[in-house]
C-alpha cells in the first residue's frame, strides 16, 4: 500500500503574498498522462487518488456552491461526486478526459441538488438577463459618440496582479465577487480561469457553444473587474 500521504498534510489555505511564488502541483490530467493516472487509479494507488482529490477539490467546491444553498451542501455534492468517481472508475471509457468526466459528474449532481432545493428559479431568471457588460451608463447612450465611453475606466497605473494581490483586502474582494457569481457564470470562470481548462473542453463539460462560453466568461470577469475597481477607488487618498 502506498503510504505517502504528503499532499494531505498541508491544510487548505489561500496562499498569501509571502509564499505565492510556490506553484501548485501540476497534475498531469490530460492526454497520455491521463492514461497513466487512470491506470494508477485502477490499480488502487492511494497516492494517485489523494493527488487527484487534492488537485480538484477546491474548484469542485466552488462550482458546486454556484448551484446549491451553502458550503455544507456543496461538500455533500462533492463527496457524492468523488464516490461516483470511485465506483465509476472501471466503467470510465476515456472518451473524454478524466477531468471532463469528473467535472461533468459534479455539475450534473450540483444542478440536480439545486433544482431539488428550488434554486433553479434564480438561474432561469438570470438566463434572460441583458447582455450588458458592466454599467451601460458608462457609455454614451445617443449622439455622435453613441456606444463610446462616457465614463472610461481609470487606469490601474502600475498595479500589477502581484501588487494588488499583496493586499488581503483585495484578495477578499475578489473572492467575494467570485463567490457571488450566479452558477452559470461561476462554472465558466472556475473552469477557464481557475482550473485553466481549454475552451473546447470547458464547452464539452458545460454543454455550451464556444461563443456562449466567452460571453459568460467575460461577464464573470467583468464582475470581478468591478470589484477590483471599487477596491482600488477606496485606496485612493481623498483629494
Amino acid at each position: 500500500m502506498n503510504v505517502d500521504a504528503s499532499p494531505l498534510t498541508k491544510s487548505a489555505r489561500y496562499r498569501n503574498s509571502a509564499d505565492r511564488t510556490a506553484v501548485s502541483c501540476q497534475l498531469p490530467t490530460e492526454g497520455k498522462s491521463d492514461n497513466v493516472l487512470l491506470a494508477r487509479l485502477r490499480q488502487g494507488d492511494e497516492g494517485a487518488f489523494a493527488e487527484l482529490v487534492t488537485h480538484h477539490h477546491s474548484a469542485l467546491i466552488r462550482m458546486a456552491m454556484g448551484h446549491v444553498a451553502n458550503r455544507e451542501v456543496a461538500e455533500e455534492v462533492v463527496q457524492e461526486t468523488w464516490m461516483a468517481v470511485i465506483t465509476g472508475l472501471d466503467r470510465f471509457e476515456g472518451r473524454s478526459s478524466l477531468r471532463t468526466w469528473i467535472f461533468g459528474i459534479l455539475i450534473h449532481k450540483a444542478k440536480d441538488r439545486g433544482v431539488r432545493e428550488k434554486r433553479h428559479v434564480t438561474f432561469s431568471s438570470f438566463e434572460g438577463a441583458s447582455d450588458e457588460v458592466g454599467d451601460p451608463s458608462r457609455f454614451h447612450q445617443s449622439g455622435k459618440w453613441v456606444g463610446h465611453w462616457a465614463l472610461p475606466p481609470q487606469p490601474w497605473d502600475d498595479q500589477t496582479p502581484e501588487k494588488i494581490l499583496a493586499s488581503q483586502q483585495a484578495v477578499n474582494a475578489i473572492n467575494r465577487a467570485i463567490e457571488s457569481l450566479p452558477g452559470t457564470l461561476k462554472n465558466v470562470l472556475i473552469l477557464r480561469d481557475v482550473e485553466g481548462v481549454e475552451a473546447k473542453e470547458a464547452c464539452e463539460i458545460l454543454k455550451i457553444t464556444e461563443t456562449n462560453l466567452y460571453v459568460r466568461l467575460h461577464r464573470a470577469r467583468e464582475r470581478v473587474r468591478q470589484a477590483v475597481e471599487v477596491y482600488l477607488a477606496g485606496q485612493q487618498p481623498a483629494l
Partner: peptide
Amino acid sequence: TVRDMIRQLSQVEDVPS
C-alpha cells in the same frame, strides 16, 4: 489583469474534511 489575478489566487489546495 483580472484574468491573471484569478489564476494566481486559485493556487489553493483544499482537502475534503
